[in-house]
Each structure stands twice: as structure tokens, then as C-alpha cells.
Amino acid sequence: MLRSMYSGISGMKANQTKLDVIANNIANVGTTSFKASKVNFSDTLYQTSNSATAPTDSIGGTNAKSIGLGAKVASINKLMTKGNLLTTGRSLDVSIDGDGYFIAAKGKTTGSIAVDSSSNGITGSTDIDQQVYTRDGNLTLDENGNLLTSNGYRVMGYWTSSSAVTRDTNGNAVVASRVDPDSTFTYDTALRPLVIPDKVNGKAVESFDIGSNGVVTAVTSEGRSVLGQIAMASFKNPEGLKDLGGNFEQESGNSGAAMISTSASTTTNSNSGAFGAISQGYLEASNVDLTEQFTDMISATRAFQASSKMISNGDEILQTITGLIR
């Protein structure tokens, strides 16, 4: 059988994969915080009919004679460039202008994630069923005031040490004491599900805002009160994160362990400079460039057609050969 036919098949398979990736990119052009992917090819094995020879006193050296056996997908890389920030005017929409991921978890409202104060790494969790990461800041609140992703996962962050969240008889979240932003206070060291309560120090919460460092502040008739701070995570190799769908990522063996942002009250070992600023009222758009995707689609389609033509030409050659015995 002609080698060109198998090379053509490998080219078709490789370019089909590229077209699949391009189709997914285009489908997600409107997906919040989506990161486009790009396919890279490499050549496959070579069949050597003559090995290279070294020069001698009487004759020069010769190069090897090798015939390639096609192409294959070498890698599918995720493009981590930041998408444009789109204004929404919605107080529960937040985006990260720079590096970092929001931390979301599925589990009980009493769940927590322990963070090592020296390494800023995660050391364990309690009452947490699943822990994921996302740049999609399209947040919501449930009837009890829990801050959630659009999928219903709880957004994790630091509570202020003196304002533990409790529940009233109706299950609504309340904060027992008011924490003045201008006073000296600290945050808990563990990450907990963040809550926008109905009341702070017995006063109804009228509004809230989220600062560039993720600090959540409520406004009551007594004034402003700090509720907590949205935590972020970063990775040595964010391209290595495992895609889960639903705009969620998960730590993998090649992403590196998560480094957690320190709280705003941390003065020793603070790593706040390694994370982007949070913008309230904005969402990060997809970084898909349609012009580039359509150009790549045309190129991949033509390469697919050319590879299929090699199979057709191989078939014609085989027909000619079999016709010789008539």
C-alpha cells in the first residue's frame, strides 16, 4: 500500500482536530472569560531507506534517505491573554484585571479551606465536596445571602475575625458586630463561603460594594462595615489546569499547586502584588479573535482537502497498477 495514502490520512486526522478546536473557539466567542485554544502539529516517524555515511579519503559522505509518514497533533495550547472588560453596571458582576482565579466550592455553608500562612498554599479543607477555579465573575445571591457563581458554587474568601456570620430563626444571614473600614481589624486565616447578610449589628444592609482588592463592604444606617474579602488563586502553569466545563478549572498534575492571595490585613508574606485588581460592574469577555479563527479555519480546511486529495491520487495509482495485469 502506498505510504502517501497513510500520510494523507494522518493529515486529515490532524486537521480535523484543528477544525474541532476552531469550532469550539468560535462557539465560545460570547462566553464570559473563555480562553481560546490553538493546535500545533509535528511530523511523525520517518522510514529510513539509506543511513547517512561519513566521508572517507576516497569519497565524500552521504545524507540519509528518509521518507516521512505524516503529521500528528503535537499540542493544544490555551491562549491565556486577558479578554476585554465589558461594563455591565451590575453590582454582582466582577472581573479580574490581571492574573488570578476566583475560588469556588461545593459543600456546606460551614465549610472551610485551610491556608498555610507561610507558603500561601492550601493544606486541607473541611465540609468541602469540590473545589474549583474560575475567572467568570458573574455572581449571584441565593435567598440566604450566600455569594455564588452562576452554577451555584459558593465563592470563597476571608471573613473578618470579629464579624462571624450567623443565621436568624428564618435562616437569613446576619453579622453580629460592625467592622468599621477605618478601624484596625484582621481576617481569619481560613477561606470560608462569603455572605452578603440581611443585617449588620441589627441594621439592615442597604447596599454593598467590592473593592479592587476584593474587600466586600456593606452599607447600613450606621455607616460602612467590612464583611470579608474575595480570595484568589494563581498557578505556575495556568495552561495546565483541567477544563471541567461551566467556566470551571481544576488543579492538575502539571498546573502546579494553587497559591492563595493573602488577606488585606496581612503585612508579613503579603503576595497581593501577584494578583490582578478586581473590578466591580465588569465581566471579562472571551479572548477569541474571530478574524484569526476564520483565517485558521480556511487554512485547516484547505490542508484537509489537500490531504484527502493524496488519498484519491493514491487510489488512482493503485488502479493503474492493478490494470497492468489485465
Rank of each mutant, 00 (worst) to 15 (best):
M1R: 09
M1N: 10
M5L: 10
Y6V: 05
Y6S: 06
S7I: 12
S10G: 06
K13T: 11
K18R: 10
D20G: 04
V21K: 14
V21Q: 14
I22V: 09
N24S: 13
I26C: 01
N28P: 03
T31Q: 04
K35L: 04
S37K: 15
D43T: 15
Q47V: 14
Q47W: 09
D57M: 12
D57W: 07
S58C: 00
I59P: 00
N63G: 03
K65E: 13
A74R: 06
S75A: 15
I76D: 11
K78H: 02
K82Q: 15
G83C: 07
N84P: 00
G89R: 08
G89A: 04
V94Q: 11
V94C: 08
S95P: 01
D99F: 12
D99M: 14
Y101Q: 11
A105T: 05
K108Y: 03
T110E: 06
G111L: 08
S112N: 10
S112D: 05
I113C: 08
I113V: 15
V115F: 02
N120E: 05
I122Q: 08
S125Y: 10
S125I: 04
Q130K: 05
Q131I: 14
V132F: 04
G137D: 12
L139S: 05
T140V: 15
N144L: 01
T149V: 00
N151M: 07
G152S: 03
R154T: 08
G157D: 14
W159E: 05
T160A: 05
T160P: 01
G171A: 01
N172W: 00
V174I: 13
V174R: 07
D180N: 15
D180T: 08
D182W: 03
S183D: 13
S183K: 07
T184H: 03
F185D: 03
T189H: 09
R192F: 00
P193G: 11
V195T: 13
P197N: 11
K199D: 00
V200A: 06
K203A: 14
A204L: 02
A204Q: 07
G211N: 10
E222N: 13
V226E: 02
I230Q: 10
F235M: 05
E239N: 11
L241M: 06
L244V: 09
Q250C: 04
Q250R: 13
S252Q: 06
G253M: 00
A257S: 14
I260M: 06
A264Y: 09
A264L: 08
T267G: 09
S270K: 12
N271Q: 13
N271H: 07
S272M: 15
S272R: 15
A277G: 02
G281Y: 04
G281N: 04
A285L: 01
D289C: 02
D289N: 07
T295H: 04
D296A: 13
I298Q: 03
I298N: 06
S299Y: 02
R302L: 07
F304V: 03
A306P: 12
S307V: 02
S307W: 00
S307A: 09
S308M: 05
I311F: 02
G314D: 10
E316Y: 03
Q319W: 01
G323E: 11
G323D: 09
